[in-house]
Design a protein around this nucleic acid. Sequence first.
DNA 1: GCTTTAGGCATCGCACAGTC
DNA 2: GACTGTGCGATGCCTAAAGC
Length: 235
Amino acid sequence: MTKAERLLAILNLLRGRHQAMTAQQLSEHLDVSVRTIYRDIEALCRQGADIEGEAGIGYRLTDRGHLPPLTFTIDELEALTFGARLVKASADPTLAQAADQALQKVRSVLPAHRQHEIERRRAPMLVATHTSTHLSQYAAEIRQAIAAERLVSFGYQDEKRRQTDRTVQPLGLVYWGYCWHLVAWCLLRESYRVFRLERLQHLEVTDQRFCRPEATIQQYLQEYAPDARTDFWSV
DNA sequence: GCTTTAGGCATCGCACAGTC
DNA sequence: GACTGTGCGATGCCTAAAGC
């Protein structure tokens, strides 16, 4: 390990913890002497790192020193870019805008050769989804309802064109089969139900708070889709 | 008193220039 | 090209100072 690599490793070790790390702990992590760690810390401070050292406590990064990790591999960048474009193309306007801004922030700190590589790889990756404006609006309102723990009401037309009025406890939004679905606890059926957003009508967020705290999307997935990739499914 | 930080000093390894 | 001397940076050991 070169000195430069070790300096970066020290920053990463301090960044990854909320508690201070002693020079002894750092030296064990990096397999060098304690004295070397002291010199490295000094070198980092000379270069502007905001590291506090205190006898009996150890070293820690101050709040100003908590720099974001900006080193991405090209695969990580590609994953981030693709994910953000997917969100931009299929999620509600608020999330779409947030995804776009996040992507711009990532790009702004990339070196030129990385930006060029991402642009080069971007061309073959097409995100061909379409979500209509009112469905995006529904998705945004449902997200807010979940965050505020409010029940939502809407008219629903099932696949056999039967019309019902529902009040549900929204649990999550799931995107599969090229369309958005609302996973919810249905007060009418007293059970978990999944609703396609395109079949919702007149969605309204009520003032009523959640009535079944034990009903969660994790519980739904455990009961109905135990093999589901929850990191992909849950929103 | 123990733990931790920090300074001084010696040693080692590497790069580079000079000489043969 | 091989060898040698020199300079510099990195490292480890020892020890003093400071905090709990």
